[in-house]
């Protein structure tokens, strides 16, 4: 290989690697800006009140993990959704979505839910598909098992009163005991000693 060719390839490789948006610290796919936008979005869908919300549950981390793995080949709708909502926010309020006040964020999301967001931001359906996409994965990340990366420290299960690991006997159901319990003043329960 000639030196000139080698240098050209090296320069192109370096340029292409620089042009890629690097993921935010702690994330694998989403850039810092995308992560902030997505966090603001999911926070509006499941806000923090007396209980933890989507932010505390690590929904952004859950989605980022999916985009790095199972959804690796389906990243484009996510990128479009995040770019679209930011564009919509700029068009309406001249600010990125994550810098808007909560009221304005909700107003924008309501427009998307109804499919009435700016066609300039969401040319196909006024943001309805993007809204549903993020909503569905936010719910998965918030209510799913923490092993998938969301629902950090079982926050949603704690809110619902669902035990992290239920108390479960060996055979789960003691049919004999159930039948006995249905009888009032039953004197003989099954005892497996």
């Amino acid at each position: 290989m000639k030196r000139r060719n080698f240098l050209t390839i090296a320069a192109l490789t370096a340029a292409s690697s620089c042009s890629r948006t690097s993921p935010a610290p702690g994330l694998r796919v989403l850039s810092g800006k995308e992560a902030r936008t997505l966090e603001a979005w999911v926070e509006r869908l499941i806000p923090t009140d007396q209980d933890a919300g989507a932010r505390e549950a690590g929904v952004v981390h859950f989605i980022d993990r999916l985009l790095a793995g199972w959804l690796k080949r389906k990243r484009q709708p996510w990128k479009s959704a995040l770019e679209g909502i930011d564009r919509g926010a700029f068009l309406a309020y001249a600010k990125p979505f994550y810098e808007l006040e909560p009221k304005r964020q909700i107003a924008l999301l309501e427009q998307m839910e109804a499919g009435k967001a700016s066609r300039e931001a969401f040319p196909d359906d006024g943001g309805k598909a993007a809204f549903e996409l993020v909503l569905s994965y936010t719910m998965m990340g918030f209510y799913g098992n923490p092993r998938h990366g969301g629902n950090r420290d079982y926050v949603s299960w704690q809110m619902l009163g669902v035990p992290a690991v239920p108390v479960r006997g060996r055979r789960h159901r003691d049919e004999a005991a159930l039948v006995e319990n249905e009888k009032p003043n039953s004197s003989s329960g099954k005892e497996t000693l």
């Binding site: 108390v167 006997g169 055979r171 003691d174 005991a177 329960g189």
Partner: peptide
């Protein structure tokens, strides 16, 4: 302890491994 020394679903003492 209750995770493994668990009663059966009816929650009766001494059922299962309780």
């Amino acid at each position: 302890c209750y995770q493994c020394h668990a009663p059966l679903s009816a929650g009766q003492v001494r059922s299962g491994d309780d």
